[in-house]
Amino acid sequence: MSRPTEPVPHLRPAGVAVIGGILLLEALGFLGVGGLFLSSLAMGDLVSVGGTVFLAVFLILLAIWLVVLARALWRGFRWPRSAALVIQLFLVILSVSFFSSGSVAIGLAMLVPGAVVLIALFTRPVLDFTSRATGETRTL
């Protein structure tokens, strides 16, 4: 079974580059926090070994998923928009708890990129780029 060829993307809008860059930076952040959780296993200052391992693995897998999303969005696919939207909504909602606990810097670090991606996902150039026509059908 042959694999369908991908259309050559025309002029990539700046919004796609911004979204992809933010997703990659978030992936680095999640990877770093996951690494901190893994390094805390060696320090012995744990409440729960199982919980720490679960969070570390979850954050590392989330970082890999964000890289996959950024790559697919860069290539012009439509499906990464919904996944990126859900992740950004969670980050915006989670930022509120950091604001209420007094960690304004962490809250802003989650709120601002999340809001930028949420807005950029619905701009006309990004929508047009990720749902362009390929012959008789539309690209997924």
Rank of each mutant, 00 (worst) to 15 (best):
G76C: 13
T130R: 02
I106N: 08
R78I: 03
R71T: 14
R12H: 01
A84R: 11
L66N: 04
R75C: 04
L28R: 00
E26S: 05
G102S: 10
F129A: 12
V18K: 03
G107R: 11
L61H: 04
V104A: 14
V112F: 08
S95Y: 08
V104S: 09
L11C: 05
G102C: 10
L121A: 09
A27K: 01
S48R: 01
A70H: 10
L46Y: 00
T130L: 05
A72G: 07
L55G: 03
L28D: 02
G35I: 01
Q88L: 04
M110Y: 12
G44F: 03
F90N: 14
V16S: 04
V112H: 04
F77N: 10
A83H: 08
G76K: 12
A105Q: 12
D128V: 07
V49E: 07
R132G: 06
A72H: 11
F98A: 13
L36N: 00
V49T: 13
E136I: 01
V16F: 06
R75H: 12
V104D: 09
F77L: 13
W74Y: 08
V47S: 04
S131P: 00
F30N: 08
L111P: 03
A105R: 09
M110S: 08
E136L: 07
T130C: 14
L38Q: 00
W65P: 00
L89K: 05
G29A: 04
A105W: 13
G51D: 01
R132P: 02
F54R: 03
I22F: 03
M1S: 15
S48L: 05
L46E: 01
L55E: 02
R81D: 11
V53Y: 02
R124E: 15
F129K: 06
V53T: 06
G76M: 11
F58S: 00
R124F: 06
A42L: 13
I106E: 11
S97M: 13
L36A: 03
A120M: 14
F98R: 14
F30C: 07
L36M: 08
T123D: 08
S40T: 05
E6A: 15
L25M: 10
V96Y: 10
A27G: 03
R78C: 04
L55W: 02
P80D: 10
P125W: 11
E6R: 15
L127P: 00
W79Q: 09
G15A: 05
V49Y: 04
T123F: 08
V112W: 05
E136K: 13
T123Q: 13
S2V: 15
V92R: 10
L62Y: 07
L55F: 08
T134P: 00
S40V: 00
T137M: 03
R12L: 04
V18H: 01
F37V: 00
